[in-house]
């Protein structure tokens, strides 16, 4: 229970979780996990310019934008509480890897922020079940001395760890989340999970598209390509060995085949190694068939310029659609 008998147990009952990168990778609820062990979870606030600026002081300049913002999240949590939980996701399924920056995230944070951090971390390799369970058990044991709680927490992880996004029927894809009725059509937005879910990282593109009256379908809505899917073609290329890469290629291919989706936007960040290669694979094929906009963002991206590009893109898309020739 962690009643202070063991000095190694955390002294604080609150564990901070930065909301960035690995936070968005998995649907697993760490909050409930820590709750079982008797801890409260505190999330960092929404990302903003201040988050980025505080983080930017400690980051190497050639890191990508999401990593820089992640530093900000960690630092803002450190102001209140120095127990930080950063899961180390190495792989989401067998035979794949996450991006090296995500894999080394806990070590990167620990070794580059001068402030002292009580870092809680656990290596999660969803392709290796036993290994992951062992790590989870070790984490639980370092947080609690009550065997029942440890058992319950490990059990909870076992049961829920596979809650990855499921494939949903195509009808549903257009229904959820979209506030507008999407009279103008639907746009597919492809990107890494954190790029799609954090409005600061994607500069509010998704919201803006909805305001313009488009339905937005994101690549997060497509299943993380499993072996048994009927779409293992990946633009007739070999499967990439990155989780993100597979997801992006699979989503791009599915969106291309989906007749309801009229245009595709790809969000990437300057310096992202994976996307540099992945985009090369699909952009020719998409450009020939559907309106396509590749956006490379970084901390210097100006909002006005970005919106102009998106407006130009949507106007072009509408004109190409033929139904609203007068629009734009």
């Amino acid at each position: 229970m962690g009643n202070g008998k063991n000095k190694e147990l955390p002294t604080s009952k609150i564990i901070g979780i930065p909301r960035g990168l690995s936070y968005y990778l998995d649907n697993f609820s760490w909050e409930s996990f820590f709750h079982i062990l008797g801890y409260e979870v505190e999330y960092s606030e929404d990302s903003s310019v201040e988050t980025f600026e505080t983080g930017n002081q400690f980051v190497g300049s050639d890191q990508c934008f999401p990593v820089k913002v992640y530093y900000g999240h960690v630092l803002s949590l450190l102001k209140k509480n120095n127990y930080i939980f950063i899961p180390q996701y190495t792989s989401m399924e067998e035979g794949t890897y996450c991006c090296p920056k995500v894999i080394a995230l806990p070590q990167l944070i620990k070794n580059t922020i001068p402030q002292e951090i009580n870092l809680l971390t656990v290596e999660i390799d969803l392709g290796r079940e036993k290994f992951t369970r062992k790590n989870i058990r070790r984490l639980a044991m370092s947080l609690s001395q009550n065997p029942l709680r440890i058992f319950a927490a490990v059990n909870y992880f076992d049961k829920n760890r596979k809650r990855l996004p499921e494939e949903i029927s195509s009808a549903e894809k257009f229904m959820g989340e979209c506030q507008s009725n999407g009279k103008k059509g639907s746009i597919g937005v492809i990107g890494h999970p954190y790029a799609l879910q954090d409005p600061f990282l994607n500069m509010g593109i998704l919201n803006r598209l909805k305001e313009f009256g488009f339905d937005v379908v994101t690549s997060a809505r497509y299943q993380r390509s499993y072996e048994q899917t009927d779409c293992p073609v990946y633009f007739s290329r070999r499967k990439p060995h990155w989780d993100f890469g597979r997801n992006i290629l699979y989503a791009a291919e599915s969106m291309l085949k989906d007749e309801k989706i009229q245009g595709i936007i790809f969000i990437t960040y300057f310096g992202c190694g994976i996307d540099a290669f992945i985009e090369e694979i699909f952009n020719d094929s998409i450009c020939g068939q559907k309106p396509y906009l590749g956006l490379t963002l970084d901390e210097h991206s100006g909002e006005a310029g970005l919106m102009t590009r998106i407006e130009a893109f949507t106007d072009m898309m509408i004109r190409k659609g033929g139904e609203n020739r007068d629009a734009g």
Partner: peptide, 16 residues
């Protein structure tokens, strides 16, 4: 090289 993912991580840690 620029945008080499593993070495960017290593490069950040070298100062420590």
């Amino acid at each position: 090289p620029f945008s080499c993912m593993p070495e960017v991580v290593a490069g950040s840690i070298t100062s420590k």
